[in-house]
Simulated scan of single mutants.
Amino acid sequence: MSETSVDEMNFETAMAELEKVLGQLERGDVALDESIALYERGAALKARCEAKLKEAEEKVAAITLDGEGNPVGAKPVEGL
Rank of each mutant, 00 (worst) to 15 (best):
M15Y: 14
R27M: 14
A56Y: 09
A74K: 14
E57W: 09
A74W: 08
D29A: 13
E34D: 10
A62V: 00
E40Q: 14
R41N: 09
A43D: 11
S2R: 11
K52R: 15
T4I: 11
A62N: 00
T4L: 10
A14D: 02
S5D: 08
K54L: 11
E8T: 01
R41A: 02
S5M: 03
A16C: 07
C49T: 15
A74G: 10
N70D: 12
L32Q: 13
E12I: 15
E3G: 15
T13N: 05
A31S: 12
Y39R: 10
F11C: 08
L25Q: 13
E57F: 13
K46E: 05
Y39E: 09
E58T: 03
E58N: 06
E19K: 12
G23I: 09
E58V: 03
A62P: 00
A44R: 14
L80V: 13
E68W: 09
E3K: 09
A62Q: 00
S35Y: 09
L65P: 00
L18Y: 10
R48V: 01
A31L: 10
I36W: 01
G28F: 02
A16D: 09
S2H: 08
K20G: 04
E58A: 05
A43P: 02
D33L: 07
K46M: 06
E58P: 00
L53G: 06
A44I: 10
L65E: 01
Y39N: 12
P76S: 02
I63F: 03
T64F: 04
A14K: 00
R27D: 13
K75M: 06
E26G: 06
C49M: 06
G73K: 01
K46P: 06
G28N: 04
R48K: 04
E58R: 11
E58F: 00
F11V: 07
A56P: 06
L18D: 03
E12H: 05
A16Q: 11
C49V: 12
E78I: 04
L38Q: 04
L22A: 05
A43Y: 15
E57I: 04
D33N: 12
A37T: 03
P71N: 01
G69P: 00
A61Q: 03
Y39G: 11
E8H: 07
T4F: 08
I63K: 01
A61M: 06
A47W: 11
G67N: 08
